[in-house]
Amino acid sequence: MAAAPTKEAMLHLYSSTLRASRAFSSYNFRHYFVQRTKSVFREIKDEQDPAKLSAFYSEKAKELATLKRSAIVNQLYGGWKLVVENEKPNAQLDRGDS
């Protein structure tokens, strides 16, 4: 019988995965992995079966290592910023006719 990971261990894995997801320099990758992380952990939050929790924890720990490596590579070859990443979210459009 596999011992279920503690709640603190699951929260640490969740926060580490979110941190790694936010490390991507590419907007699309960053938002995809943040949303995916939130949705995957939301699905397992009410699970009580220790075997399922243990399997989930070990699988996601492996994925975290891969995610960290992928984020580093993405930072090296990030590319250009997209229009949606504009630094001024509340900026007024300058129409030039005033």
Rank of each mutant, 00 (worst) to 15 (best):
S98T: 14
S25D: 12
Y57G: 03
A71E: 07
L67Y: 06
E47L: 03
V84W: 01
K68C: 11
S58C: 10
R69T: 15
S15Y: 12
Q92E: 11
F24L: 02
Q48S: 12
K81A: 09
K68I: 15
V73Q: 11
K38D: 12
Y27W: 08
I72T: 14
P89L: 01
I44P: 00
M1A: 13
E85I: 00
N90F: 04
E47H: 05
D97T: 15
A51Y: 02
A51L: 13
D46R: 08
R69A: 15
L11D: 15
N90L: 06
P50W: 01
V34L: 00
S70T: 15
R69G: 12
E85D: 00
D49N: 06
A9T: 04
K38Q: 14
H12C: 12
S25K: 10
H12M: 13
K60N: 09
L13A: 01
V83E: 07
F41S: 06
A91M: 07
S39Q: 09
V40E: 04
G96F: 05
R95H: 12
S98A: 12
K88E: 08
A55S: 09
H31T: 07
I72R: 13
R69S: 14
S16P: 10
E47V: 00
G96Q: 04
S26W: 05
S39F: 08
S16W: 02
K68A: 11
K81V: 11
E59Q: 12
R30C: 04
K81M: 08
A20H: 00
F56W: 03
N86M: 04
K62C: 11
M1H: 11
E47R: 00
D97M: 13
D97N: 11
T17F: 01
K81F: 08
Y77G: 10
Y57Q: 02
L13V: 03
S54H: 04
L53G: 06
F33V: 06
W80L: 14
F33R: 06
N74K: 02
A91S: 06
S98V: 15
F56D: 03
F33M: 06
A2D: 12
Y14V: 03
A9V: 03
E43W: 03
A71H: 05
T6N: 04
P5D: 00
N28C: 11
S26L: 05
L18Q: 04
K62F: 10
P89H: 02
S21H: 01
D49E: 08
F29E: 08
R22I: 10
F33C: 06
S70F: 13
L11Q: 15
G79V: 05
N74G: 09
Q92Y: 05
F29L: 10
E43T: 09
S21E: 04
Y27H: 08
N74Q: 03
R30F: 01
